[in-house]
Each structure stands twice: as C-alpha cells, then as structure tokens.
C-alpha cells in the first residue's frame, strides 16, 4: 500500500522552511507560532483521536492535552523525526493513557454515523452507495472494538495511510512488531465484518 502524501497545511515549496521557522519561533516561546505549526495538523490529529477513543467529548479533552504537552515539550523537539510524527506520537500516548484510565465500558461508537460517511460520487448508484456506507459504519465499529494496540496499528497504517516505518515510530514499537499487530487487527476486523459483506461492498 502506498502511503498517502500531504498531511499538513503547508503547501509545496514552503513546507520545510515554513515549518522549520515556526518550530524555531515556538521553541523561543512564540505561542502563536506554535498554534500555527500545530494547527496545520489539528483536524487530522482530532480525527485520529476520534478513531482511537470513539468518543467526541473524550477526543476533545485529549486533543487539548496533546497540544498542551506538545507546547510544554517543544523545547525538547530536536527534529530527529518530523514534527508531524512527534505530535502524533504524543497523541497516541495520550490516547493510550486515556484508554487505560477509562472504565471497562465498550469502546463505544458514539461517533455519529454521519461522521463515518464519505461524500459519494453522483455517478454511484444508490444501492452501491448504501452498501459502501454500511461497510464504513461496520468497519468503524469493528475498529472501535479492537484492543487499543491493534486499533492504533490499523488506524495509523490503513486509515491514516502512514508508512509502516512512520506508523511504527508513532506507535513506539519496531516495524516487525507493528506489522504483527496490523495483521492481527485486519484478521479480527475481517472476522467481525465477514467476507460476504466486504466483497459485496468492495466490488
């Protein structure tokens, strides 16, 4: 699978320089620069937290905590990984911390079904649109029910489209261990949804 490009809001040509400048300013104490730097990833980071936590209120709370921790730790960021990877790692750590704290209630799926739907092409026929939407909802539920380490793996690699190397780095484990979790996650999701539903909706 080819990782999807383009994660931030920094356009081509200005991305590296702009980001480096914002990092330097943030490290010097410029909170506005930090907000601009991190705000470029805010929507995607929030979506990641929604996927991992399955609860909008909790995702909002954790997102605020992630930004606070990133701000408090920005002086220690040394650029050994990309800023995106560093920020996402904080997010995964905070999500894991929140999941550990959470009482053993089901991983919920309070994410509204409308949020699980993608815009569909007008060329798609209604039956196929309905099947595809059903699959997305079932997939969201199956992912939400995975144990957190497996959920992190499938969300980072398949939903977020990160490379194995980047996803493993964010998850804080080696690539072989990450792959093992990813394969386990996919097998469980496949079992939860069933081949018939996957093949029918997948075409």
């Amino acid at each position: 699978m080819t990782p999807r490009p383009g994660r931030g809001a920094f356009g081509p040509g200005q991305s590296a320089a702009t980001e480096a400048s914002l990092i330097a300013r943030a490290q010097a104490g410029d909170v506005a620069a930090f907000e601009q730097l991190s705000g470029a990833y805010a929507d995607r980071l929030f979506m990641l937290l929604l996927r991992l936590l399955g609860d909008r209120g909790e995702a909002e709370d954790v997102a605020q905590e992630v930004m606070l921790r990133a701000w408090q730790g920005i002086s220690r960021f040394q650029g050994r990984s990309s800023y995106f990877t560093w920020l996402y790692r904080i997010a995964v750590n905070e999500a894991n911390r929140a999941l550990e704290k959470r009482a053993r209630r089901p991983a919920g799926v309070p994410i509204g079904e409308r949020e699980l739907q993608l815009p569909t092409s007008p060329a798609d026929d209604p039956l196929r649109q309905a099947e595809a939407n059903e699959l997305r909802v079932a997939l969201g539920r199956a992912i939400a029910e995975l144990p957190p380490p497996l959920r992190v793996a499938i969300v980072l690699r398949d939903v977020e489209g990160l490379s194995t190397q980047e996803a493993a780095e964010i998850a804080g484990i080696g690539q072989a261990a990450f792959k093992s979790r990813l394969h386990q996650a996919r097998l469980r999701v496949r079992a939860a949804i069933g081949d018939e539903a996957l093949v029918t909706a997948g075409g």
């Binding site: 699978m1 999807r4 909170v31 930090f34 907000e35 991190s38 705000g39 805010a42 929507d43 980071l45 929030f46 979506m47 929604l50 996927r51 909002e60 997102a63 605020q64 905590e65 930004m67 606070l68 701000w71 409308r114 949020e115 699980l116 739907q117 993608l118 815009p119 595809a132 699959l135 997305r136 997939l139 969201g140 992912i143 499938i154 398949d158 939903v159 977020e160 489209g161 996919r186 999701v189 496949r190 949804i193 069933g194 081949d195 996957l198 093949v199 909706a201 997948g202 075409g203």
Partner: peptide, 28 residues
C-alpha cells in the same frame, strides 16, 4: 475481502465535516 477491507479503511480517512474543536489550544 482483505483488499476490500484495506480499501474501505483508507476511505475512512479525511472524513467530511470533522474539524478539530476551536478550543484545542485553550490549555495553552
């Protein structure tokens, strides 16, 4: 089925209308 699963999972990315809350930097 596995290919369809991976393809569908990719489709969960970039969901329409989901935005980070305006309060995301409030604790700063």
């Amino acid at each position: 089925a596995m290919r369809a699963l991976v393809y569908a999972a990719q489709g969960l990315d970039g969901l329409a209308g989901v935005r980070a809350p305006a309060t995301i930097f409030d604790r700063l």
